[in-house]
């Protein structure tokens, strides 16, 4: 087996607010292999986001070792971590976090503008369009976030996370602000990406969303208390097909009396 994408060894994170110490993560060890699709679940305040921020190199653990692609990143300095985020990691947030008044295309181009190596304007546009095509928004490249639905905005955010071809895609409650059908659509995008070999770690509160993943970690009080593969994995494309036919039927029944 090749080296895991992620190796966490006894990661701890303690927040200190004056005299009060909060142990958000208290010793998590974890390997993530290439091609995995992991859901992290757990109660509010259990430390999921803290773990994700550590994985995403947005935050440093208080102690422990984090090897990303075999490289210890726990004590890299600020700009080196910025380059890692840019090149090896893609982040999708609950609140989409697109730049307002900025077209979908320009939002997706953003990571390339911050790439350590210069990307030409043409290549930027080509790659951004390709990423938008992957999430099914190629035709809406010139739309502003305000002109897109929540699900579409989240797909733009996913395209942005993908555009630099990261080793690991991280998503903290990506469906948290979406209705159930749109959530399934977004999970469909993740499943397709995962089939193409992209490693994904996401946080969710909903068990049925987690069942689109391959492996579930349950976190409680800063520790992983369960780690098991998904039974009865759901396939987003099938669920969507079912939803569509149900909708079509609903339409038939509601429009029938009028006809």
């Amino acid at each position: 087996m090749s080296t895991p994408v992620v190796q966490l060894r006894d990661i701890r994170k303690t927040y200190r607010n004056g005299d009060l110490e909060v142990h958000a993560v208290r010793g998590i060890s974890l390997d993530i292999q290439i091609g995995e699709f992991i859901a992290i679940m757990g109660a509010s305040g259990s430390g999921k986001s803290t773990l994700m921020n550590t994985l995403g190199c947005l935050d440093r653990p208080t102690s422990g070792e984090y090897l990303l692609d075999g490289v210890n990143v726990a004590d890299l300095e600020r700009s080196a971590r910025a380059d890692l985020r840019n090149q090896k990691l893609g982040f999708v947030f609950q609140g989409f976090n697109l730049l307002a008044r900025t077209t979908a295309l320009e939002n997706v181009e953003l990571p390339m503008l911050y790439a350590p190596r210069r990307v030409s304007g043409e290549e930027m546009k080509r790659r951004a369009m390709a990423a938008l095509d992957i999430v099914g928004l190629g035709k809406r490249f010139d739309h502003l976030p305000s002109q897109l639905s929540g699900g579409q905005q989240q797909r733009v955010a996913i395209a942005r996370a993908l555009v630099n071809e990261p080793r690991l895609l991280l998503a903290d409650e990506p469906t948290g602000n979406l209705d159930s059908k749109t959530s399934v659509e977004v999970m469909g995008v993740f499943q397709r990406l995962n089939e193409q070999g992209i490693t994904i770690v996401m946080v969710t509160h909903e068990l049925d969303i987690a069942s689109y993943c391959k492996r579930i970690l349950v976190v409680r009080d800063g520790l992983v208390v369960r780690d098991e593969p998904v039974q009865n994995r759901m396939i987003a494309s099938e669920q969507l097909a079912k939803l569509h036919s149900a909708e079509a039927e609903a339409k038939l029944t509601t429009t029938a009396p009028a006809a």
Binding site: R78, S79, A82, D83, R85, N86, Q87, N97, Y114
Partner: peptide
Amino acid sequence: TREIGIRLAIGAHDRD
């Protein structure tokens, strides 16, 4: 602030 946060998360350096 949020815009700056997004940029930093995406890989902007302090200098950028």
